[in-house]
């Protein structure tokens, strides 16, 4: 039995200025999916995530969340179900970690109000889940890249969403933090039934953690399925334009670019 559909995209197209980014793209996301969105630079991964997060509006096509068109859902209500985490987090002002996490409660608050005790508790739990509680009083700008990424995940968790969209959450992180972030996400997916969509560049990590990969190229879906079906030598070589060698260990596919000198 397949799990119920959470989000359905049909014939989505999007154009920045004049160059098309997404063309007639259709797909559906099922509950508790752990999707890795892969593809070369400029293939439309970030744009697709922003459209799914209600941040950008597609030029054509429809996008539905649990049967309702996203364009018809109140923005705050939608934010209670779907959260989005950007790739980098430039911060001009000296907000503290705890303040950033509390901002995740925005969709639940009315104007001129302050966070309630419950909001503080939810934020606290989110920080514990992401191991950020111990530096909640520090300034966001003074913590490391891996810590920032965890704080942003905590803030997104405070939104209490059913689905999280993450734009390259492991880019610019060292190996330890990459694994740490993905383990946190894996845990959220397994224990909290969180549906996750991650744009990723590291194919090996994607194949190791995700149960479904969607390969994008030039704004269209090339392949969609379990890692074994998507990570194929001929497809990857065609999409990325480099020779690759594939092997597999413990059922996980590993991709190595072939470097011949």
């Amino acid at each position: 039995m397949t799990p119920p559909t959470l989000m359905k995209l049909e014939n989505i197209s999007f154009t920045y200025e004049t160059s098309p980014v997404l063309e007639n793209l259709s797909m559906s996301i099922e509950e508790q999916d752990f999707v890795g969105l892969i593809g070369p630079n400029g293939s439309g991964k970030s744009t697709l995530l922003k459209i799914m997060g209600g941040i950008l509006k597609s030029d054509t096509g429809s996008i539905r969340f649990k049967e309702s068109p996203v364009s018809k859902i109140n923005k705050k209500l939608f934010a209670q179900s779907v959260s989005w985490i950007p790739q980098d987090h430039p911060m001009v002002f000296p907000f503290k970690v705890s303040e950033i996490v509390l901002m995740g409660r925005h969709p639940y608050l009315s104007p001129l109000s302050f966070e309630s005790k419950e909001d503080f508790e939810i934020s606290q739990r989110a920080m514990e889940t992401t191991m950020t509680a111990q530096f909640s009083d520090r300034y966001f700008n003074e913590i490391s890249g891996g810590e920032k990424q965890r704080v942003m995940i905590a803030s997104a968790l405070a939104q209490n969403p059913e689905m999280m969209l993450l734009d390259e959450p492991t880019a610019a992180l060292d190996l330890k933090y990459q694994v740490q972030i993905l383990s946190i996400l894996k845990n959220l997916n397994a224990e909290h039934k969180m549906t996750l969509i991650l744009a990723m560049h590291d194919l090996n990590l994607a194949s190791r953690f995700c149960n479904r990969l969607i390969l994008l190229n030039e704004g269209q879906i090339v392949r969609d399925g379990p890692p074994q079906q998507v990570l194929k030598k001929d497809i990857l070589e065609q999409v990325y334009g480099v020779e690759v060698d594939l092997d597999s260990k413990d059922g996980n596919i590993r991709v190595h670019p072939a470097i011949r000198s």
Binding site: G54, I55, A79, V82, I85, H89, M91, M103, H106, M152
Partner: peptide, 12 residues
Amino acid sequence: STGVHSASSRGV
């Protein structure tokens, strides 16, 4: 003030 896109994703 923390970013327009993340603000939008929080319902602003």
